[in-house]
Each structure stands twice: as structure tokens, then as C-alpha cells.
Design a protein around this nucleic acid. Sequence first.
DNA 1: TACCAGGTCGTAT
DNA 2: ATACGACATGGT
Length: 288
Amino acid sequence: MQKAFNIKAREFDLEATMYSGQTSQPPWHKNGKYYSELLIIDNKPSLVTIKQEDNKLHVKIESPEKVPLSEVKEKLNHIFDLKFDIEGFYDFLSSYPPLDSIVDYSRGLRLFLAKDIFECIISSITSANCSIKRWTKAIDNMKRLWGQKYTFSKGTFYSFPAPDVLANLDDDSLRLAGVGYRAKYIRKTSKRITRIKLDVMDYDEAFHLLLKFPGIGPKVADCILLYGFRKLEAFPVDVWIKKIMEHFFSVDDRHLRDFAREEFGEYAGYVQLYLYDYARKSGIFGGV
DNA sequence: TACCAGGTCGTAT
DNA sequence: ATACGACATGGT
């Protein structure tokens, strides 16, 4: 089946979102202005290709079986958080004195949410003490080495391997993907993670549960909750966030997470996204 | 060539 | 609770 349609995408910058380094997944496969990725729609592997034009997203879908277009649309709305009232967020930021100008820097940037929650968990673990370039490549390696292979007219794509596949590899094999010492964290967490139900938990409960898994500390837990489960009060604190927060506020590093949730509430995740983008790209700390 | 990377873990205080 | 070194290895 091959179909094409459009969806509305206001206040959205696809390219900025795609390359903003969020640990949900690597950027999609780029071909000119088109981005393609394998998505599981209605349990059917489908190749989805998108292109942004003004306030629209052009969508093409190729699938061996018929898939409901409403579900493709829903999935894309979810992944790019297109239903989020981003203007409400802009209003919040622009009336918040220390941060009132950072909006202009990243307008259109939205959450890049997980297409596969397990991929997001492993991406987040792999990203620790690792460059964005390297962890995104490692995830692509894992897909190519151990994922399921699907061939479409546009080329070959791989799914991210299931938890039991990674759980049953030994550490030396896992290292072939380039994950280094994180191999044992990935293997052990893969073995246990399948049994948990984070989606029905509230933020606090899920956060403390995640901390019990090897390779998951506070920063990675917040990435999983924000980019994986869309817990908007999550505020991942990394080296860039520490620098930029120190620039704007006078709060001890160790209390940044609590401070942010109290100060920004349901906007904490988006504030983090915009601060991170600003810190890396503004050049005030040396740039990306 | 060294040095760094969207931190976490284990150990010592 | 807080501090600090080790950690694999690709990228530059």
C-alpha cells in the first residue's frame, strides 16, 4: 500500500527538532528535504516519509499491508508533540524575566518523542558520558546488527531489537555496536525492564523505580520520562543544563531538578529543551 | 596525540 | 548526604 496525505503542523521546525539531540532515538534517514523512518502502525511495519512545508507536514506511507491513515497521523502527532499548546509555553517563557528572550532562539522546537519506548531507554543509557554523534551511531549499529530487517522501495530499514534479544547477548557482542563499558548496563536493564509498567505511574513513582536499573541515574531517568513517556515535569540535568542554569539562576547544582519542577511545573521539560538548545547553539559556552 | 563526551557506579568521608 | 576517580571508545 502507498498513500500520501498532509497533516497540520503549526509552530514546528522539523529539522531543528530532528537534530536537537533528544535521547528518544537517532535522527531519521534524510534524503534531501525528506525524512524516512520505519514505524510500527497497527502492528504492521510501515515506512513513513515526511517533508515539512510551511505549516504542513507532507506524509507518504509505504506498507506491505493496508494501515489506517488515522493511526499514522496519530503516531506522527505524538512523536513530534504537535498537539502541545506551544504558544502557551511561549507565553509562559516570555513572561518569565530571566528566560524571556530564549524563545526566539529555538522557535518551533518540539519534543521528539519515542517511536519505540525500549529504544528510548537504551538510547538514554547509551548517551551517558558519550557524544551525541557516537550514541546515535551506536543505536543505528544495534538496529543493523540485531533488529528485524524490512525492505521497501526506498531502501532497507531495521527495527530496534526487542528487550529479550539484547538481554541474551554477551557483553563482548554488545560492544560491537560501540557502547563501551555501558554493555553490561544495557544487558542487565534489558533483562529486567520488560516487566515494568511506567506508563500508568505518576512522575515521582516512575522516577524512583527507574533509578534502580543499572546505568540509569537521575539524568537518564528524566530523559526516559520526558522523551519516552512525555512526563512534562521531568527536567534532565546534564553538564549543559548546569552551565546555563548557573548563568541565569543561583541554585546549587544538586538541587536543580527539584528547583526546576517547583519553578516551571508542567513546563519543566520544555524549559529544559529550550535551555539546552540555547546553551549549545548560542555559543556563549563554546557551542556544540 | 591527547582530550572530551547530554553520567553512573562504587567507595571513602 | 556529598565528593571523587574509574570507566570504553569514537570523534576530532
